[in-house]
């Protein structure tokens, strides 16, 4: 896989975000009294950061399976809109495609929509490598956190800003690629409205609103 060096470079910022965040999850998780390998298993099978943090709270409160399922669904519903813009990029098939879809987190989506795959090589191999590297950072983080517990020597407070910085950088890259104000303007307005009125479901509400406005724009403005 000669796409690996490029994928590794592109995914490094996610490592700085996923390892400390995964560790934070692992620490909270082992506080509940579960063995460390279950944190690893969660990172491997669920692989959804926000939902895993939510699950810690729900497990601590002895929530039922249905409540956990509904909460996970509500929290991850935004991912439906990610796939909408990946149909074309993720054109490969079989197990590789299944894994790309499984691993479509916020950060992997951000990288896959912004980074340009190397000219040599299959783009789907590049996306696959990014997805697998990102998940490996997350699983390593979850595992480390659960094993070391709260006895970690290194103070990684603030390292999770790497994900904010990654989104900022990719926003600039999107601007350079698109060069049209309206998607940014639409999203900024919807985002502010959602932050003010629907803070607990900010992403779902603002992404849905933005999608509606983008569809309207497509319908009523010459389909450019």
């Amino acid at each position: 896989m000669h796409v690996l060096p490029a994928a590794w470079r592109a995914s490094l910022p996610v490592m700085f975000g996923y390892v400390p965040l995964g560790m934070a999850f692992g620490i909270l998780f082992q506080d509940l009294g579960y063995p460390w390998y279950l944190a690893t298993l969660m990172g491997l099978l669920v692989y959804a950061g926000a939902a895993q943090f939510m699950a810690v709270g729900l497990l601590a409160a002895h929530a039922g399976l249905i409540e956990i399922a509904v909460s996970t669904f509500a929290l991850n519903l935004r991912h439906v809109f990610f796939g909408l813009s990946m149909l074309d990029r993720y054109r490969c098939s079989g197990l590789k495609k299944l894994y790309l879809i499984f691993g479509l987190t916020d950060e992997t989506y951000s990288l896959a929509t912004s980074a340009t795959p190397p000219v040599a090589g299959d783009p789907s191999d590049y996306y696959f490598a990014i997805t697998a590297l990102n998940q490996s950072y997350w699983v390593v983080g979850c595992t480390l956190g659960a094993i070391t517990g709260s006895a970690v020597e290194f103070d990684s407070t603030g390292m999770e800003f790497a994900l904010t910085a990654l989104f900022l950088v990719l926003l600039l890259e999107q601007w350079k690629a698109v060069r049209t104000v309206f998607p940014f303007l639409v999203a900024a307005s919807c985002g502010l409205i959602a932050l003010i009125y629907f803070k607990t479901q900010m992403l779902l509400v603002s992404i849905s609103l933005s999608l509606i406005l983008l569809v309207l724009r497509y319908r009523y403005s010459g389909n450019s």
Binding site: S85, T113, L171, V178, A188, I207, V215
Partner: peptide
Amino acid sequence: LARYIPPAIMTL
């Protein structure tokens, strides 16, 4: 949508 959802989502 494939062109304009990513900049919108990055903003959000």
